[in-house]
Design a protein around this nucleic acid. Sequence first.
RNA 1: CGGCGCGUGGCGAAAUGGCAGACGCAGCAGACUUAAAAUCUGCUGGAGGAAACUCCGUGCGGGUUCGAGUCCCGCCGCGCCGACCA
Length: 852
Amino acid sequence: MAVQRKQFPFSEFEPKWQQRWLDEGAFRAANPGEPGFDANKPKYYVLDMFPYPSGEGLHVGHVEGYTATDIIARFKRLRGFNVLHPMGWDAFGLPAEQFAIKTGQHPRVTTERNVDRFRAQLQGIGFSYDWDREISTTDPKYFRWTQWIFLKLYNSWFNPETQKAEPIETYKGDNADSVRLAYVSEQPVNWCPALGTVLANEEVIDGKSEVGGHPVERRPLRQWVLRITAFAERLIDELDGLDWPEGIKLLQKNWIGRSEGASVTFGLEGASETIEVFTTRPDTLFGATYLVLAPEHTLVDQITTAEQRDAVEAYKRQVASKSDLERTELAKEKTGVFTGAYAINPVNGARIPIWTADYVLTGYGTGAIMAVPAHDERDWEFATKFQLPIIPVVAPADGSQPDTSAVFVGEGIAINSAPIEGLPTKEAKARITAWLEEKGIGHGTINYKLRDWLFSRQRYWGEPFPILWEEGRHRALPDTELPLVQPEMEDFKPTGSPEPPLSKATDWVQYSEKARRETNTMPQWAGSCWYYLRFCDPLNPERFVGTDAENYWMDAGKPGGVDLYVGGTEHAVLHLLYARFWHKVLFDLGYISTREPFQRLVNQGMILGPDEQKMSKSRGNVVNPDSVISEYGADSLRLYEMFMGPLEQSKPWSMKGVEGVYRFLGRVWRLAMEETQEGDWTISPALVEADLTPAQLRVVHATIKKVTEDIDGFAFNTAISQMMVCTNEFVNASPRPVAVLRTLLVLLSPFAPHIADELWALLATKFSGFHGRASSQAWPVWSEEYLAVSEAEYVVQVNGKLRDRLVVPKDAPQAEIEAKALALEKVQESITGKTVVKIIIVPNKLINIVAK
RNA sequence: CGGCGCGUGGCGAAAUGGCAGACGCAGCAGACUUAAAAUCUGCUGGAGGAAACUCCGUGCGGGUUCGAGUCCCGCCGCGCCGACCA
């Protein structure tokens, strides 16, 4: 590669300033009670989604979000805020463990190496983190408190009366274990033989593991589960006070999937058992012509008749062997078999057949449905295929006859339904539900798609559960024994069975003569559920976060504590939902001061490769931030990522674009510096202490205004454009007033902090008014008086079409503008033969003459 | 299949309902240079015209409005996410 002369010596001054900021503790945030804490300053907590320190190193996608928050953090500091801007590592997780298994190296070693690399990369971009607050989820001093919070969940229950988490002691029932927020449950889980672990539903994509893409099968296992469903209602309702993108709120609501309906009890013909079904359309009960049980439903075996047994068994085997992908295949044919049994419809005594089919899911509702083929598409398809009766019970509201040849899923008027005959759907639902309750055969209920959170993993590299087992019963490990650290092991491979690797550490497992330790570990989500709290007070040995620190940084008189949280949409549902859940439990128990963790959420868009495809190793279109830095410098990298386009939008990378902002920084550099014959840089002799012309003043103040407003509005790309405009204005000015740099360098410093501080320091050697650093000044203020113009240029339109322009004194009277506009030759041409019916004037901007 | 988002020059983009294309990239021409690179200056949506200028133009069709890239309705295309949740 041809070595090109650098436009400015970034490779010398960038590392110098990074070191100096670290040495000076330039971005340390003082906590209440610490030296340097100023109680008069308002607080601002700006947080990045901390990274998993992979072996790949930092990605340009990370840099985008991190640069945006760094600009905000630096801007807020200059505006007089006490800013908390921390960084840490979400360092437990599968890749480190997989690598460890392959190479035999302890995951701690590779994790530390990756963390060092990430830290060096982040520092090489000049992010203004308070590195004294760095935390890692794998640090026992950190996960001690992850385990402590788990014990809080274990020792709490959700009181339906208060709608809050409470200590388990307030529970008056006889089986506390049945209500704990952390509980043990035998349930079918996603078992991945290749990874040797179970996975959460969310970690399974199309029947394959999210990590590695290995096949996943279903198996019943004893698991730790967190009772997140108890908070479903609040997790929906309390989104209301948050400044999140509406789309993300919607995603969360849909994920939780609240639906109102009724639970109805069907009797079995010739048996005492009953079948509960959930329906959102109780008004269609009279149209229920058969029932369907999920193949996994426990009643299937009991009710199946001798003649049907072989068919049902065969069907169950067939379903069990299907992968999740095959089962959810789109546009697939409905399948199912008749069990031979019949149920009695409790509203009309009708005898209806009971089928089993895999279009009914075992995990939702009761795993059984009443089928109303006339008014449900799935039931319609099924009934049509197996020739089951279809009885319409809802007529279209427009009074037209029900069309029995097609399914009608809309609302309408109830027909063929004695107690609710003629009622519109909404009323019919309410009436029939009340009627069901009266008769004791059903009741109104609410169902959620959200399932409780499967919380255990059969892995080594995660937080061990602080739980002991004795005689088949579990109990909490005493707080005093936290942190519970994984045992040192030579062999941390999965056992290949669902038995976790920790079970191989027999000495560690044997807690006492009778008690054994739990050998599962927690999922990666655990550590990221509360890290934002630890950042407030990362070294506290007494508490997961000190009360004063938590109150100060998290409480801004709003529902959420963190003022700004930036990260990718991939965490829109899970991480954010899990963190909100833990937060609410800690809030209910009185440990923290806000009901929500994150007040404002912003999602950065994806950065695509130059080919407009998602960056990936296999496509070979990955852009490495290190190579950009070595060629153009960290400031160029930062600036380009912000100049590409709106933060939330996805956009392709372009090296030519990097060169563009690099050239801009070169122009800024040459505003102040000039190259000597010998190739050294010296302060430009054109630079003098002189007044700015009115035009220059206008540009400078317009720039202050636009940059200030655009940072506030997250429009970093247009803020940069304006700084380019300002720079272009001065590039050829000679003499060149040095005052412009006193302002421009401060405006530039959040975006390109190295060059701003470097030029500031160089100018201080010759000019007054350059004290301290550019990045420690007060943010400039604009004056409208410099922006004011004495003349206004009007756009003159006739019938909305541009015809001419008109220059008049600013704020000229309307009559004068009208007269002058009408007198214009081009206006006359276009209105001859017409009558002027109306004239619209937008002051100092536009006049529109409407003529017919 | 459903939900959400997005469609503006050769490209990334900009535009409180009020001059479409700021700023940058690429391209063309010029200055500087022995030459090139770098830098600086000018031009750069399309069609027509020697020019002044004219007409057309924000995916397509309709609507609201004095005025629509922007708001409303319907379509088409692309992207992301969820997918039989009764």
